[in-house]
Design a protein around this nucleic acid. Sequence first.
DNA 1: TAATAAAAAGATAAATCAGTCCTAAATTAG
DNA 2: CTAATTTAGGACTGATTTATCTTTTTATTA
Lengths: 147, 147
Amino acid sequence: MLFTTATGYALRALAGLPEDGSFCLAKDLAARLGIPGPYLAKILQGLVQADMLESVRGPKGGFRLTRPAHRITVGEVVVALEGADTLEGCIMGFPTCSGDHPCPLHEAWGAVKTQISSSMTEATIRDLQLMDLKHLKDAKGHAAVKP
Amino acid sequence: MLFTTATGYALRALAGLPEDGSFCLAKDLAARLGIPGPYLAKILQGLVQADMLESVRGPKGGFRLTRPAHRITVGEVVVALEGADTLEGCIMGFPTCSGDHPCPLHEAWGAVKTQISSSMTEATIRDLQLMDLKHLKDAKGHAAVKP
DNA sequence: TAATAAAAAGATAAATCAGTCCTAAATTAG
DNA sequence: CTAATTTAGGACTGATTTATCTTTTTATTA
C-alpha cells in the first residue's frame, strides 16, 4: 500500500457509512469492516475535525457523512491524514536530485506523482462505495449458482 | 520518498564507493555522504550479506563493490532492503480490490507499479554515480564563475 | 432526575524504524 | 606476539505508528 493503514481505514470507513442521513456506531462499523474498534474510533474523531463526518453522542448517536459521498474526494482524505506533501521529494531520497540534476527515476516518478494526484482528486468516496457494492453483488451471484 | 531512509542511504553509499577495487572505510563514506556513521555501518553489513559489497576487517580494510556498478540494479537494492513486494497490493489497502473488482485507483496504480518496477530494474548504481558526478561538475562550474 | 448509551480525550502498550553504543573477532604493522 | 585498526553482531535508546484502555462529557430515555 502507498498510504498508511490509518488512511486505508478512513477510506473504508467513509465508504462504509450509509448515505441516508442515519447515524452509525463506531463499533458497528468497525465490526462490519473488520477493523480494530478503538483505533477506528480515533480515526473517525479525526474525520470529524476534518469536517468530513459529524458525530452525536449518547444513545441513538454515532457518525454520519457531512456531505454526499460524491463530494468527498480520496485526495482530501489522504491530505487530512497524511499531509499535503506525501508524494514530494526524490523517490530514492537523493538530496542532489532535482529537475536540473535528475536521478534515473526522476522522470518516471514525476509522471507517477502527476497521475496518482489527479486520480486521487477525481476519485470520490462514492466510487469506493460502488466498488464494494459491486463486489458484494458478484459474490452473492456466485453463491446463488451453487444450490 | 517512496522507500525507507535505509534504502536511500544504501543507494547513496553504493554510488559513493570507488570502482577501482580499493577499499573504503565506513566512517569516511558516512562523512562524505553526510549519513550517520554507525547507522551506515549497519546498512553496509546488510549489503555484504546481500552480496553487493565485500568487506575486510582491520587496518587497510573497509568495503568495496563485489561487481561493477553497472551490474547492480536499483531494484536489486530495494528488494534486498525492503523485500520483493514493496509495491504489491491495493494502493488504498482495500481488501476487496482485485483485477476483477478494481478500486478507482487500481488501473493508475497498476500502471505506476509497472513503470516504477521496470525503471528500477533498468537503472543501475552506475547511473547514480553519473548523476552525482554531473552535479559536482556543474556546481564546480558555477563556483568558477564567481572569482 | 437517574440510568444508560455513545463519542471525546488522554494515558498507556506494542511494533517498527532510525540511530547509537559496546564488545568480540579479524587483520595488519611493528 | 602485541597493539592498533576496522568490521560483525548484539543490546539499547528515541520517535512514530498502530492499537488498547480508562475516564469524562454529552445526549437520550425511562
